[in-house]
Every structure is written in structure tokens, then in C-alpha cells.
Amino acid sequence: MPELPPLPVQIDPLPYEARLDARPREQIDLVVIHCTELPDLAMARRYGEQVLYPASGTGNSGHYYIDRDGSVHQYVDALRIAHHTRGYNPRSIGIELVNTGRYPNWLAADHQAMDEPYTPAQIESLIALLQRLQADHPTLRYVAGHEDLDTTQVPASDDASRTVFRKRDPGPQFPWPRVLGATRLERFQP
């Protein structure tokens, strides 16, 4: 792989980062792409800081967040296991793209469209980050959307007789062909 241009990353660890389990670099073979389904990075940060697991004092968060302007923020070191995708956390790096998704009615049956496109700056930064992660983690082979890995359906919040997918991110606006074409990663199918 040719030398990569610098990728500015703002490192801003979550308060509980040191309490997340460490892992060896060679354990990482998967990147999971998410969207925050929140209006902005500040709200995503507040959600990430919430302690949801009292026994460990940790919460849910991706490793990296990419804002609409393309800025990249690291909240959890890649060599720590973040809580972002059920069943896949020990082997994966989570990348969150700031996007409203289905906010604020995530599970409402009549609010499942994910219409906000990702910005060109976000996709360029994502590709650069994926290329950098491939260089830093030689065992990294796969990429998946959160929706590929969590296909759980739940009763809709506005009509319990209907079901909706719990996770739909990164959703229909995500440019899979472009991202896969710019990296050596394979789309992971469970």
C-alpha cells in the first residue's frame, strides 16, 4: 500500500475508556459502520458518555466519530473493546457517522425512512480512516453495516402490532460501492 497522507484525528477519550477491556491488535478483523441517528456530534458525545453498565462503569460508543464537516474524533482507542454492536465488539472497530437517521422516533413504524445523505467530506474522511486502519491493523479484512449484524425486529413504538428493525444504520444513503472500491476490505455477511 502506498504511503498514506496524514489524517488529522481529534483524540478525546470517553471518561470510562480505561475501564473498557483491552485486546490484542491481531484480534481486530472487522469494522462496523454506524450512523449516530442523532442531530449532531455534541449529542452523540453525551449519549456515549452515559454509563449504561454499572458493574463496569461503561456505556455504548463507537471508537471513531466522523462529523458532517469530515472531522474525525476518536473516543475509544482501537485496542480497547467498545460497546457498539452486539456479539461483534471483541473483534471490531466501530465508526459512527453523524447523521439524523430516524431521530427522534427511531422505532416508530411510520418514521423508518433514513433520508439524510452523508456529506462528501464524511465519506472522504471515512475512506481515509479505513485506509489508515488497514495499515495499522494488518488482520483487518472486513467491513459491515450495523444493519448487517443486528437484524433484530421489535414492536414499533407507535403501533405494537407492527415490527421494525432495531438497527438500520448506516442505511440506504450509505455509498457502499464507493467505500468498498476505495479499500481492500470485504463486505462481511454473518
Rank of each mutant, 00 (worst) to 15 (best):
L4A: 03
T85V: 08
A78Y: 09
E17Q: 15
A55H: 10
P104R: 05
P120N: 03
I127K: 02
G87H: 08
Y142V: 07
R184L: 13
E116P: 00
D12N: 15
D150V: 14
I93E: 02
V72N: 09
D40G: 12
L52T: 13
R168P: 00
T58S: 07
R141P: 07
D136I: 00
D29P: 08
P13K: 13
P117Q: 14
G171E: 05
K167Y: 04
E186Q: 15
F174V: 09
E116F: 06
T119R: 07
A109L: 08
Y103Q: 05
Y16D: 02
K167M: 01
Q173Y: 08
A18L: 11
D158A: 04
R162N: 00
S157G: 04
R168V: 12
D21S: 14
D77E: 12
G145M: 00
D148G: 03
H34V: 02
R23K: 08
A44W: 06
D169C: 06
L38G: 05
A156P: 07
N60M: 10
A109R: 11
P8F: 13
T100L: 03
E116S: 08
P120W: 06
D159R: 09
M114N: 07
P190Y: 03
V76R: 06
L30D: 01
Q112W: 11
L41A: 14
H84K: 05
L79K: 06
Q50Y: 11
E116A: 14
S161L: 09
V51S: 10
A18N: 13
A121L: 02
E186G: 02
F188H: 04
E96N: 12
P15S: 11
G101A: 07
A121S: 01
V179N: 10
P54T: 13
V51W: 06
A113T: 05
Q27I: 00
P138Y: 13
V76P: 10
L30A: 04
T119G: 00
E37M: 13
D29F: 14
A113L: 14
T100Y: 02
G101C: 12
E37W: 10
Y16R: 02
E17C: 10
A156V: 07
P6T: 05
V72Q: 09
W176K: 04
P6E: 12
T85Q: 15
L14M: 12
L4N: 04
P155H: 07
Q122R: 04
W106A: 02
R162M: 12
Y88V: 03
V76I: 15
L4W: 05
T139Y: 07
V31D: 04
P13I: 09
Q74S: 06
E116T: 15
S71G: 12
A108I: 11
T36F: 11
R141C: 09
E147Y: 01
Y64T: 00
V76N: 12
Q122C: 04
D40P: 07
Q134R: 14
P104E: 03
P13V: 11
T36Q: 09
R178G: 01
I66H: 12
A128Y: 06
C35F: 07
L129V: 10
S157F: 11
V164H: 13
T119Y: 04
D40L: 02
I93R: 01
V98R: 08
E3Q: 01
L140D: 05
G70D: 01
D69M: 04
P5Q: 11
E186L: 14
G48M: 10
P2Q: 14
E49I: 03
Q10T: 15
W106R: 08
Q112L: 15
T152P: 00
N60H: 06
P172I: 03
V154A: 09
S56D: 15
A109Y: 15
L41T: 14
